[in-house]
Design a protein around this nucleic acid. Structure first.
Ligand SMILES: [Mn+2]
Ligand SMILES: [Mn+2]
Ligand SMILES: [Mn+2]
Ligand SMILES: [Mn+2]
Lengths: 141, 141
DNA sequence: ACCGAGATGTAACCAAGGCTACATTTCCAG
DNA sequence: CTGGAAATGTAGCCTTGGTTACATCTCGGT
C-alpha cells in the first residue's frame, strides 16, 4: 500500500491548480469590496505581491471566464458567477484555517499554510476538518 | 482578524509550487527504482499521466538543477541531492497521508488530497499532523 | 482650471509545463 | 540476424503567470 496504488492523483492536483488563481482572486476581490466598496488593480497587486501588469492580465482571463467585469481605468466587479465562487472559496478557506488552528498550529502558520492547502481539500476532507474543529472549539474545551 | 492581516501568503504558495514538480518527480523516481531497479521516461509518463515529451523536458530541468542524471536513451538516476530530496519528500508525503487517514478520511481520498497538500505543509504543521496521527493510531486504538 | 503623481494600460520578454506530429533508436521475437 | 513495435528524442505550438520599460489616463490639491 502507500506506494503504487494511486492511479493518478497528479491529474487532480493539476486541475486544482488550474482553478486556484480564479478562486484566490474572486475571494480577494470580495473581501476588498466589503471593506473598501471599490476594488482596483493596485489593491490586488498589493494583496498578491505581484506587479500590476500581472493583475491586469489575470483580470482579463477572469473577465473572459465571466468571473469579473471591468472597464478601462474602471474598478473591478464580480459577476454572479464570480460571487458564487468567492463565497464558496471563502467558506472552504475559513474551514481549513480554523481547522489548522484547532490542530494547534500558530495563527501565522495557519494563515500561510491554509492559503495553499485550501485548493487541494476535497469535499470529504473538508467535512472531516469541519467536524474536527467543531469538536475542538465548538462548545467544549 | 481572519481577513486582511496576512502580509502575503501567496508568495509562499508560489514558492511551494515552484519546487513541487521536482519533489514529486524525485519521489516517484525513487519509488520506481525500489521496485523495478530501473526508471525510464515512460514510467514517469504513466505515473503523472502526461506525455513522454513533458517528462523529457521536466527531466532536462531536473538534470540542469542536479537532481537527476541521464543519457540519451538511457535510464534515469538520482544524484545524491536528488536522493536527499526524495527521502524528505517521501517522509512528508507519508506523514500527510497518515494524518488524513487518522482524521477519518477514506484511503482513496487521502491519497488524492495528500498529493497536493503535502507541498503546502510547513514544518510546524507537519509536526502537529505527526503528533495527531500518533495519538490516534500510535499505540492506542 | 491645471498639473503632476499615482494608477492603469501596453509592448515585449521569459520560464514552466502542457500538447501533437514526426524522426530516430533500441532491442527482442521469430 | 533482422524487422518492427515500443521507447525515446526533437520540432514547433500553446497557455499561464511572472517580469521591466514605457505610454497614457485620472483626479485631487493648489
Ligand atoms: Mn489560496
Ligand atoms: Mn498547490
Ligand atoms: Mn508526492
Ligand atoms: Mn505531490
Amino acid at each position: 500500500m502507500t506506494r503504487r496504488s494511486n492511479k493518478s492523483a497528479h491529474s487532480r492536483v493539476r486541475a486544482d491548480h488550474a482553478s486556484e488563481i480564479a478562486e484566490d482572486y474572486v475571494e480577494a476581490i470580495a473581501a476588498i469590496l466589503v471593506e473598501k466598496e471599490i476594488c482596483r488593480v493596485i489593491d490586488l497587486a498589493r494583496e498578491f505581491q505581484v506587479s500590476h501588469v500581472t493583475v491586469n492580465r489575470t483580470i482579463s482571463r477572469l473577465q473572459r471566464d465571466e468571473f469579473v467585469t471591468t472597464t478601462p481605468y474602471g474598478p473591478i466587479e464580480l459577476t454572479p458567477k464570480g460571487r458564487r465562487l468567492a463565497q464558496a472559496s471563502r467558506r472552504r478557506h475559513e474551514i481549513v484555517l480554523r481547522f489548522l488552528k484547532a490542530l494547534g498550529v500558530s495563527d501565522a502558520t495557519a494563515i500561510q499554510d491554509s492559503e495553499g492547502i485550501e485548493h487541494h481539500v476535497s469535499g470529504e476532507t473538508l467535512q472531516a476538518m469541519e467536524k474536527f474543529a467543531a469538536k475542538r472549539l465548538g462548545s467544549g474545551e
